[in-house]
C-alpha cells in the first residue's frame, strides 16, 4: 500500500497543486491513523502484524473498496447511492444460476453484469434525467432488489453447483500465494479509477458537476449524462463486489450485503468525500476503507464482541464528518 499511495499522491499533486495540499493533508492524517492503528494492534496481538494477517485485512477490505469506488464517484457528482448492498446480493443470483445451468463462468459473469447495468441505468435515469432525489431512488431500489432476492430464493441460499475452479479462485485464492485476488482486483480498479478521476476529462467533469452543476452546465458539460454514468459505474462496481462475495460464499445468499451500503458510505465519508459533491479523492476513500478494515480486524483479536466494530465505526463516522465540517467552516 505505501508505494501505491505515493504514486497517487504524486499524480494528485500534478492535478491540482494548491488545492491538493488541502486534500493531501487529510490523506496524510488518514495514513497516520492507519500507522497508529497498526502500531496499537501489533502491541495488543502478536498475530496482528504478520504478512498473513495484513493481507487478510486487505482481502476483507477489498469488497468495500470496490463498491466504495463507485459510491465515492456518485458522491463526488453530488448524488448518493445506497442500493449497493442489495445489488451485491442480487447479482449473485444470475451469476450462480447461469453458471449452474451452463457450466460457464463467463456467461455467469455476463449475466451478473447485465443485472448490474440494468440497475445502474434505472438508478441513473430516474435520478439524473427524471430528477427524483437519488436518496429516494436508491432507497426504493434497495427495497426492490432485496425483496426480489427473497422472492426468487425463497429466503435460502442458492449453492454453486458448477464448482468451477476459476470461480472459486477469484474470491478465495491468493495471487502468488500472498495477495488475495479480491485485493488485487480492488487495487487495479482503484488505480484505474484514480487515473480516470484525475487524468481523463470524464473524471474532471464529475468533480465539476458535483462542485457546481450550474457552472458545469454553462461550460457545456452534459450534467445529466455525467451523473447517469456515475450511477452506472457505481452499480458495476457493486456488481463486481457481489461476484467476489458470491465466490467467497460459494453460493447466492439472500442475506448477503445487508447493511453493506452503510459500511461503504462510512468508508467513503471517513475518506473525506463529502455528501455535497465536488470534493474528495478515491485515495482518501481507500484509506478510509483500510482504517475501518484494520479496526475491525484488530478489534476481532482483542476478544471484544464483534458488535463493538459497529459501534466504533458509527462513532468514527460522526467524528470524521464533524471534524471535516469544523475545518471547512474555519477555512471559510
Amino acid at each position: 500500500m505505501p508505494q501505491s499511495s505515493s504514486i497517487a499522491a504524486r499524480s494528485g499533486s500534478q492535478v491540482t497543486d494548491t488545492f491538493a495540499t488541502l486534500g493531501r493533508r487529510q490523506e496524510i492524517a488518514l495514513v497516520l491513523s492507519i500507522f497508529a492503528l497498526i502500531a496499537f494492534f501489533s502491541f495488543t496481538s502478536d498475530y496482528f502484524f504478520t504478512v498473513r494477517n495484513l493481507t487478510n485485512v486487505l482481502g476483507q477490505g477489498s469488497l468495500v473498496m470496490i463498491a466504495g469506488i463507485g459510491v465515492a464517484i456518485v458522491f463526488m457528482s453530488g448524488e448518493v447511492d445506497i442500493s449497493v448492498g442489495s445489488l451485491q446480493a442480487a447479482v449473485a443470483i444470475p451469476l450462480i444460476e447461469v453458471m449452474n445451468a451452463t457450466g460457464n463462468l463467463w456467461l455467469g459473469l455476463a449475466a451478473a453484469l447485465l443485472l448490474g447495468l440494468i440497475v445502474g441505468v434505472i438508478n441513473g435515469y430516474l435520478s439524473a434525467y427524471v430528477g427524483i432525489n437519488s436518496l429516494i431512488v436508491t432507497l426504493g431500489m434497495l427495497f426492490i432488489l432485496r425483496g426480489g432476492v427473497y422472492l426468487y430464493t425463497g429466503k435460502t441460499a442458492i449453492p454453486d453447483d458448477a464448482y468451477l475452479e476459476s470461480f472459486f479462485v477469484i474470491g478465495n485464492e491468493r495471487f502468488l500465494g500472498v495477495v488475495p485476488y479480491p485485493a488485487l482486483i480492488a487495487l487495479i480498479l482503484l488505480l484505474g479509477f484514480m487515473y480516470v478521476m484525475s487524468h481523463r476529462p470524464f473524471g474532471r467533469k464529475v468533480y465539476a458537476v458535483g462542485g457546481n452543476a450550474e457552472v458545469a452546465r454553462l461550460a457545456g458539460f452534459p450534467v445529466k449524462r455525467v451523473k447517469f454514468t456515475c450511477f452506472i459505474i457505481s452499480s458495476v462496481m457493486a456488481t463486481i463486489s457481489g461476484i467476489l462475495l458470491a465466490s467467497r460464499l460459494g453460493s447466492a445468499v439472500h442475506l448477503a450485503g445487508i447493511g453493506f451500503e452503510f459500511q461503504v458510505v462510512a468508508a467513503v465519508v471517513l475518506g473525506g468525500v463529502s455528501l455535497s459533491g465536488g470534493v474528495g479523492s478515491l485515495l482518501g476513500m481507500a484509506l478510509g476503507v483500510l482504517i475501518l478494515a484494520f479496526m475491525s480486524n484488530g478489534l476481532g483479536m482483542l476478544d471484544l464482541p464483534t458488535e463493538w466494530q459497529l459501534v466504533i465505526t458509527g462513532i468514527i463516522i460522526i467524528i470524521a464528518v464533524a471534524f471535516d465540517e469544523m475545518k471547512r467552516r474555519r477555512a471559510g
Binding site: 492535478v15 474532471r204 468533480y207 465539476a208 462542485g211 457546481n212 457552472v215 461550460a219
Partner: peptide
C-alpha cells in the same frame, strides 16, 4: 462561472 475547487489553470480549459 468557475468551479471554485479547481485550480485556475484547470478552470481555463474546462
Amino acid at each position: 462561472a468557475l468551479i471554485s475547487e479547481f485550480t485556475v489553470a484547470e478552470n481555463i480549459f474546462l
